[in-house]
Amino acid sequence: MTPEVEQAIAEIRQAFSEHTVEVQPESQGGAYIIVHSLPIGEQYTPSTSWIGFLLGFQYPHADVYPLFMDSAVRRTDGQAWGTGLSSPVCWNNRNTVQISRRANRWNPTVDTAATKLAKVLAWLRSL
């Protein structure tokens, strides 16, 4: 893994210290990351899920996008997924719900994978 990806993983472990963080290096210097048991909100059943994403080898110049969560997650009100969410999508040999949240103002000197994950969690909870 590149030093930047390793640092991002350390920051994720620190920011989400109560959650298991699974890391699977990929061949170019990036890594597949899965953070387990994240609270995504009562509007979903179950209200927790893992969230996964690829940290590309050109991180932090590259955005952390898209993200994925467990395909078992449903909206509690029975509605279909709205804009930004789609399923089923196969990611890393899993069926998932894809979370498409590009950062239009991604700044590699400020934004990190940990802050992106926190923002995506906040967005999921706001729906």
Partner: peptide, 22 residues
């Protein structure tokens, strides 16, 4: 002229790009 989302897309394998079909 170096869009961060495009960098990420180009880092994906062909099968990943197809799977993430949007």
């Amino acid at each position: 002229l170096i869009p961060p989302d495009r960098l990420q897309e180009e880092a994906l394998s062909e099968s990943e790009r197809k799977a993430q079909r949007y």
